[in-house]
């Protein structure tokens, strides 16, 4: 079976510091794959390499067999990759509806002049995409907040808006950067349910970064554990918890913290 996402021998150096060292792992289609490790292990760096925000010093990123290394961040979206951010980054001055519409906007095929002159295609696409945005908000249970500013929502709901916004771009691979961070147990349970649901409904492959081993254990089919930019474990999450190297890495992190 060929892998859906392949991180192939990626090295990332900043100045003289090696943030990622010859890292390889593969995500199969339809998996929820976890990328875990203590703070500063290089998890977000890998995300930024996959999304084109960083250009790796060495190595390649393959999506469905296609080399996408160095594709510009805004083009990566059209390859079918969408992301969320570690510290929720919604468009603060915009309504929830507009935040989500941004994700859909690539599908609005009207030109600048058609918008200015309000030609028929403007109305057609605006109506269509607004309907789709409401459908998506229904799935997340946030449609009653459509006209609110994104920042007026609770933390858990903001996270939902962010994931919905990413989904609106019609991705095949969804990258979630610490989706459960800062959430209470109820919100976390709610979130896991939604992630499973959208994975099914939208036929997604999900790569997520997490710090919380419990959440990972409940969510992921497979994990890679990073420490100081190196892979120290790959396999089932249940095995990771009892792996000596993993435990040491985490304990080390706790003692430092």
């Amino acid at each position: 079976m060929s892998s859906f996402l392949k991180v192939d021998n990626v090295t990332m150096q900043f100045g003289g510091v090696t943030a990622i060292d010859s890292l390889s792992f593969e995500v199969q289609k339809g998996q929820i794959y976890g990328l875990i490790g203590p703070n500063g292990a290089g998890k977000t760096t890998i995300f930024n390499i996959i999304t084109g925000n960083l250009h790796p010093t060495k190595g390649r990123i393959l999506l469905n067999g296609e080399d996408i290394t160095g594709t510009k961040p805004n083009k990566v979206v059209y390859k079918g990759i969408a992301r969320t951010f570690q510290n929720i980054r919604l468009f603060k001055s915009m309504s929830v509806l507009d935040n989500i519409l941004i994700g859909f906007d690539a599908r609005a095929k009207y030109s600048y002049f058609e918008a200015i002159l309000r030609l028929p295609r403007y109305f057609k696409y605006e109506r269509e995409l607004k309907e789709k945005a409401y459908e998506l908000m229904e799935i997340f249970g946030i449609s009653q907040f459509a006209d609110y500013f994104a920042t007026e929502l609770s933390y858990g709901n903001q996270r939902k808006v962010e994931i919905a916004r990413a989904l609106a771009t019609n991705p095949k691979l969804l990258l979630l950067d610490e989706p459960a961070a800062g959430m209470n147990p109820n919100e976390t349970a709610d979130l896991s349910e939604i992630i499973h649901k959208i994975k099914r409904d939208f036929d997604l492959t999900i790569l997520l970064i997490e710090h919380d081993m419990k959440f990972v254990n409940a969510m992921c089919d497979s994990v890679t554990v990073l420490d100081y930019g190196e892979k120290i474990f790959e396999g089932k999450p249940a095995d990771a918890i009892v792996n000596e190297k993993v435990v040491t890495a985490y304990l080390g992190d706790f003692t430092h913290a």
Binding site: N74, K75, A82, K92, I102, D105, Y110, A115, I116
Partner: peptide, 30 residues
């Protein structure tokens, strides 16, 4: 014209650039 731009996908994209350029890029906005 300005109102028509603002209330269209172009206006949304412009505002998203103002609010958070990285997030706008991550949404596929050039």
């Amino acid at each position: 014209v300005m109102i028509h731009i603002i209330y269209s996908k172009f206006g949304r994209a412009m505002k998203s650039v103002r609010d958070d350029e990285d997030a706008a890029t991550a949404m596929g906005i050039n």
